[in-house]
Design a protein around this nucleic acid. Structure first.
Lengths: 285, 285
DNA sequence: CAGTTAATGAAAGATTCTTACAAATTGGGC
DNA sequence: GCCCAATTTGTAAGAATCTTTCATTAACTG
């Protein structure tokens, strides 16, 4: 549905462009927003090329013509990566890095939104609904994701727990049986301990759901895998976004479970919500 | 920076439109995406009105003309609230709720990105840099956010800890002194226990940073507040997005601290990263 | 360096959009 | 119910914008 960001596509294609095409690209990349507002004549003049060159440029990037190109460009400018270089620069100040980090997170979410397999989501919801018990496992940064999952899923009146201790994980995995679901969260999917825990769990007939990188050892051994492909952060300054993506996916799963439970389950959720009221200062003071 | 969604604006204006204008509105709202791709003639025909009527319609909604209108409409369709009703519907299936949850998260992030005070972020980075000790406090869902923060900030070689136990929080707050930073995370900012802990900490001369809702009791008592205004989720099916926003803000802060530390700090981060290598299966097998 | 291929732009043509103006409709006021 | 003013709507011409064709120029190859 969503393709990659047009601006990135143009940037990537830059080296393979010929003279006039690259002139056009330069002008567009230097101020994409202005480009969406100008006519083909204006843009051609600014780039020092003819109108047909601009038109050809547009067609090269899978647009029907110039107007269509402007439309696609405009779409690329919203919310996604909004500028050519969105990496945090060592010289950035607050005004620099703050929006960049938001943008890169947003961008990754949009990517996963368009790539995630809905049928897999459905499968996982199935497993969670049928589970006798659910364990959320994670280490390091994924530990807090697991914890958040626990905090979300206990609401479904199911025996849920979360563990970020390798030994606990091992022991629980080894005592698991059919009907137990081990939901294992791992950014890389290559941490040995985690993979071993998954192996143990499966050997005992439990269901293992992996929220992890595609084609990783953990993905291979899981009963169902929710692949999340988030680009590795080679940039030292950029935070790891996969945690955030994992959390949103867990939100999706929780919503899926709620919907399956049907409307007669809502009062239960309401009760939990209300239980917290006495702990709060009321809003009108 | 971000204006309100065009589709919502049109929907709201619907009752005040005259006959042909509302015909145009109907056609656009029924399939906004198609509208961005069609010519004024096509659209006019579909709506059963003349071309100038469509043109007038566009101008009524602050567009220079039809092409400009299409551009603005296209922007409205991306990433943000992409449709009239983006709430999860009890009858939604996976294909329905999955993108909706991503979209609503993305939308909230974009909102906060455009609203967050950069000078506040800078102030908080200052405090964190100067801190002798940092405590991250949170309860419930904010507990796992605090935990994530700990996992991020220990890398700075500072005494950092996180606590989700009210009694621990109280005790630590009461023993805090000048130079200690209590970073308190709370969605509502109205949980009594949390506010009291903040009061105790301040009374002892510690710095309290509140990552919470604006104008809340916690915000009032904090030394510095990072306001996060995320719409209350009245919808039973929609997850709480503030956690995610909080995490991204903590990412921003961590980046701010890293940058302040300067490039000579990078080897330290690298060391931590490398320490995990032996725990992983290598990538080429 | 000739011959071929690719790249580019001029100009005409097609399409799309906008404007001016006239016709039609609507809504009071008598 | 009828007239007049105000508003709404459409026709048609005109303007702007975009696309195509084709000739020219540049680049590459043996």
């Amino acid at each position: 549905m969503h393709s990659q960001n047009l601006i990135n596509i143009i940037t990537d294609a830059l080296p393979s462009l010929n003279k006039s095409e690259s002139k056009v690209a330069q002008v567009i990349l230097s101020d994409p927003d202005a480009a969406t507002r100008s006519s083909i004549a204006t843009l051609a003049k600014k780039a020092g090329v003819s109108e047909p060159s601009v038109n050809r440029f547009c067609k090269r990037f899978d647009a029907a013509g110039f107007p269509d190109f402007k439309l696609k460009l405009a779409k690329s400018l919203v919310s996604g990566i909004r500028f050519v270089n969105r990496n945090v620069d060592p010289n950035d100040d607050v005004d620099g890095y703050t929006p960049k980090i938001f943008d890169s997170t947003i961008n990754n979410l949009a990517l996963v939104r368009d790539k995630i397999s809905h049928s897999r989501v459905n499968q996982v919801v199935d497993k969670l609904i049928q589970a006798k018990r659910i364990y959320f496992f994670g280490l390091g940064a994924s530990g807090s994701v697991a914890r958040d999952a626990e905090n979300k899923f206990f609401r479904f009146n199911l025996p849920v727990s979360c563990h970020d201790d390798v030994l606990m994980q091992r022991m629980l995995a080894s005592t698991g049986t059919t009907g137990d679901v081990f939901f294992i969260i791992s950014h890389t999917g290559r941490t040995k301990e985690v993979v071993e825990v998954a192996e143990i769990a499966r050997a005992n007939g439990s269901t293992v759901i992996g929220l992890t990188a595609p084609k990783s050892p953990l993905a291979d051994i899981s009963s169902v895998t929710l692949d999340v492909e988030v680009p590795e952060n080679t940039d030292e300054y950029m935070p790891m976004t996969s945690r955030i993506v994992h959390l949103v996916i867990l939100d999706v799963l929780a919503t899926g479970v709620t919907l399956r439970r049907g409307p007669e389950f809502l009062p239960h959720l309401e009760k939990i919500k209300n239980s917290l009221k006495p702990t709060r200062y009321s809003k009108d003071n």
